[in-house]
Design a protein around this nucleic acid. Structure first.
Lengths: 179, 179
DNA sequence: GATTTTTTATAGTGGTCGCTACAAAAAAAT
DNA sequence: ATTTTTTTGTAGCGACCACTATAAAAAATC
């Protein structure tokens, strides 16, 4: 997970994944079936843990504006962290950027499915307060998260992301309130 | 340029680039020196053309809010276009996403330099009206553009991006006006 | 038209990719 | 303790990567 996260799907090889797991290629394929098979499990584990900032924000309760604001703040806190101190590479979101520019259609499809799932959760939650504008508001949140993830991958630090997250939060509140 | 734009730096090989140009590898290297050499020229040509939405927006004049709003609108119009109809791949911004997750440090450095250049132009322009908040406001614009580029690469259509661009424009105006 | 220079194509360099055949070692079952 | 099953490491599969040595073709010069 750390390797995929730090460098993206294509840039990390099966041999290196095996070395990190302490196994050799045959054991790797016996365990995961394929490189994409491990990536699928990786995405699932990632989305089930602390990286699912929307789930964490929602667990603390509050109305839509509060939860979305918290989601953006958590992303700003999570995204700049270095995920694999040994080698290079920065964080951002594994789901949003892990398979970006990948040449493997299977990896792209897996990441796409995870993105759709995440967006649907945000959209449905927003719909509880603003059913008619839920799609547009969800797009605002998703684009903001994608931009923050990309900025983090380009070296943006926590302070910068928190400033952007605060502005995105104000933008969301303004759009939600309908003026 | 179309190939790099559609699929990203790593996912397109020298042989394919040569085939598109009608030349074979030795002529390719005589002309460009290396794959990264062509990428550098590609980035320059891209940034000098219609893809530089900020330069286009600025050329039409207006105050900071007007120009930034126009920049976002032009990005929403440009990013969803398919750039290489023959094969797969979607648009977004070549500078922002062309070398994302690349394993080649040279390609990353070239794209990074182009991004810094673009951000500096936006920042300096914003500074003409809001010198003390120019950095934060430039970050908002850059993150918005990165998010829109990523969304376009994930299949967002023009209508969706224009909706997001309009919301980002309102966010920028609000932040610029200082409340 | 013959000679020199430039450009090109053929073919192949070593390297890495995802993945696997095979055989040795370890574990489980009898 | 022997046999069977499972797991593992060694080695290598074909394919592709960026890149290049060499020699033939094309262009330019004389």
């Amino acid at each position: 997970m750390r390797l995929f996260h730090a460098r993206g799907y294509d840039a990390v090889g099966v041999a290196e994944l095996g070395a990190e797991l302490g196994i050799k290629p045959p054991s790797f394929y016996a365990a995961f079936g394929s490189k994409a098979g491990l990536f699928e499990r990786t995405l699932r584990r990632y989305a089930a843990g602390e990286a699912n900032v929307f789930a964490r924000a929602r667990a603390e309760g509050g109305d839509v504006a509060t939860v979305i604001g918290r989601t953006l703040a958590l992303a700003a806190e999570l995204y700049p962290g270095r995920v694999y101190p040994g080698l290079g590479g920065t964080a951002g979101c594994l789901v949003l950027d892990g398979a970006r520019n990948s040449a493997d259609p299977e990896a792209q499809a897996l990441a796409d499915a995870a993105k759709r799932e995440g967006r649907a959760a945000v959209r449905d939650f927003i719909a509880t307060e603003a059913p008619d504008r839920a799609d547009a508001l969800a797009d605002l949140v998703v684009v903001a998260m994608m931009g923050m993830s990309a900025a983090a991958r380009d070296g943006a630090d926590r302070e910068k992301l928190e400033r952007v997250a605060a502005m995105m939060d104000r933008a969301f509140r303004r759009e939600l309130s309908g003026a």
